[in-house]
Design a protein around this nucleic acid. Structure first.
Length: 550
RNA sequence: GGGCCGGUAGCUCAGUUAGGCAGAGCGUCUGACUCUUAAUCAGACGGUCGGGGGUUCAAUUCCCUCCCGGCCCGCCA
């Protein structure tokens, strides 16, 4: 069922070059008071992957546009940390973002905590107050690394501090009405449905069976029964008890609108999974039951990771911290400025394409792209300042990403810089800081080459000579080449030519000769343009290696 | 089964608001650079804009219909 009044797809109209402008228009049209509240929410159930960051980044750009328009804006992020652990994730991550297998932590301890709120489960890494706190912490760190300042709100704290108490009491007092409203969206809601899940005082699990409500006293009676969790059942302990409204949680469909009310939310982006389920019921509950205007909604499509769905539980994840080892922060921020309505693949394998796209986007902003269309210039001029925050007066030096990967084949920083300069990627008058900043990309591209083990993953074999079989003629050719280098001290171009000449002179197949060269220096069949590269290395090493001495 | 969103070049994506010659980058191919070897430069190839129908002088764009993919219509977020 779709409610036209609150159609979450209608926020983005496609009129503007930047979708965040359209979302901001809708927020202003809704007419909330400053400070405007922009919210997202993530369950700290496990590794916070890049897709989860939509909850923060989509809201961030809208918040920034609203700030640009003179509004005071708070950006919140609710850690839905009173939710019960429903299954064991296959992968976890420590606070530095290092992924570990479930087996590397105390899996048994976790298993015994199925059904318990995240904030009641001990941190398997022992570094935070709870499982929930651990992963909330990781989410905050991810936001921080992206340069986004968000206030974290813990759901558990909202319950324990009593901030949720009034709305919970209201909902329980009008439980019949609540049932009716939700029943319009969920067939399974029957007469026994109660919009509150107490935590069992005996076993600590979130339970579903409420036997009596005393709204005035602010208590419910419950029985700890079994709970379905996907394909498995979490067993209840059978305990019958009484809980206060601070000792439990609202079901998600009510909890979400309750957050809007308690926190005064004006804008909230959410994944497409919510668009047809939680949102219609939530906006109805907010308007009908709570008597509040729901926030301006915005639906975003999901990302995939190298073609497959992100999955915390299955371990198909990449964290912000991982990505930032491969690309600059602003490249990743750029990724989140793309149209939320379109599903996107985030490809680690081809992250060079994203970087190229960003570099071009940046050049467009600085007016350095010939034959650019007006549309793309307009987009870059509008969006680029939001991506980088503070726009530098001069365009940063960017080494083409794959070129940076080639530079990563040598570890010598001076040599990297020299090659980059010779190839014209570093302008004459560039400051030392600007050059150093540009060369940082080499480390990232190197990391990419190694991680994906792609065509740039070559490294000069300096220490030990790779085993190479050379026939007599090839040996003579290599010796000639060594002598040529010793005598002539050629530049790269000359040396490249001489490689060809030498091969011809000795009647060796040129392809084979190059392959021998790559084998000697890289222990690979292929590599970068050999002459250029060897000319840049220290001569003594090259000559010695060509003579197969070590 | 019903609903929502999406489908544009091999890949990643602009463009559709308001109908007016189908776009970029990357890849591929060819060529240049004394040189078949991944960094540079030039050029080319590349499309039924998911299919079909309709409206129109004109449709990727508007309408209808069908196909494909994801999601929702249980729980949970």
């Amino acid at each position: 069922m779709s409610d036209d009044e609150y159609d979450p797809h209608a926020t983005l109209t496609g009129d503007a070059v930047f979708w965040a402008d359209e979302a901001a228009d809708a927020v202003e049209a809704r007419g909330g008071d400053d400070p405007l509240v922009v919210k997202g929410g993530i369950s700290p159930s496990g590794v916070p992957h890049l897709g989860n960051m939509n909850e923060i980044m989509r809201g961030y750009y809208v918040a920034e546009v609203l700030r640009e328009r003179g509004h005071e804006v708070r950006q919140l992020f609710t850690a839905d940390d009173r939710d019960p652990l429903r299954g064991l994730p296959r992968k976890l991550a420590d606070l530095d973002g290092k992924i570990v297998d479930l087996g590397d932590v105390n899996a048994g301890a976790l298993g015994r905590n199925l059904g318990h709120p995240y904030t009641d489960i001990p941190d398997p890494f022992g570094c935070c107050d709870s499982y929930g706190a651990h992963f909330s912490n990781l989410i905050e760190r991810s936001a921080d690394r992206l340069g986004v300042d968000v206030e974290t709100v813990s759901n558990t704290e909202l319950y324990e501090s009593g901030e949720f108490e009034a709305v919970t009491r209201d909902l329980l007092a009008s439980a019949d009405e609540a049932r009716d409203v939700l029943g319009k969206y969920q067939d399974k809601v029957d007469e026994s449905y109660v919009p509150f899940n107490p935590i069992c005082e005996n076993c600590g699990k979130v339970t579903e069976t409420v036997t009596a409500i005393d709204a005035e006293a602010g208590t419910v009676d419950y029985e700890c029964t079994d709970m379905d969790a996907g394909d498995q059942t979490i067993e209840g302990c059978g305990h019958a008890g009484t809980a206060t409204l601070r000792e439990g949680k609202l079901p998600w469909r009510f909890e979400w609108p309750a957050q809007w009310q308690v926190l005064g939310v004006d804008f909230e982006p959410f994944g497409k999974d919510h668009a047809e389920g939680s949102w219609p019921s939530g906006s109805d509950i907010a308007a009908t039951l709570l008597g509040i205007e729901p926030p301006t909604p915005m639906v975003y499509e999901w990302f995939t990771l190298d073609g497959d769905p992100f999955s915390s539980s299955a371990g198909n994840v990449v964290l912000v911290s991982d990505v930032l080892e491969l690309v600059e922060r602003d490249v990743l921020r750029y990724f989140f400025t793309k149209d939320p309505k379109r599903a996107r693949d985030f490809s680690i394998e081809r992250i060079d394409l994203l970087v190229d796209e960003f570099d071009r986007f940046e050049r467009l902003y600085y007016g350095d792209v010939e034959d650019a269309s007006e549309r793309e210039i307009e987009r870059a001029e509008r969006i680029y300042p939001f991506v980088v925050g503070d726009v530098p007066d001069e365009r940063p030096i960017r080494l083409p990403y794959t070129f940076a990967a080639v530079l990563g084949m040598t570890e010598d920083p001076a040599l990297r810089e020299e090659i980059a300069r010779r190839e014209g990627h570093i302008p004459e008058g560039a400051s030392e800081e600007a050059v150093a900043a540009a060369l940082e990309r080499v480390e990232r591209a190197r990391e990419w080459a190694e991680r994906t083990d792609n065509q740039y993953n070559y490294r000069i074999e300096r220490r030990t000579m790779p085993a190479v079989d050379v026939d007599e003629e090839t040996a003579a050719a290599l010796d000639d080449l060594a002598a040529f280098i010793e005598d002539e001290e050629p530049d790269g171009e000359t040396l490249q030519g001489e490689v060809y000449e030498t091969a011809k002179r000795h009647d060796i197949d040129i392809g084979d000769f190059f392959a021998t060269g790559y084998r000697l220096f890289f222990d690979e069949e292929q590599g970068p343009k050999l002459g250029q590269f060897l000319a840049d290395l220290d001569r003594e090493f090259v000559v010695t290696r060509l003579r197969r001495e070590k």
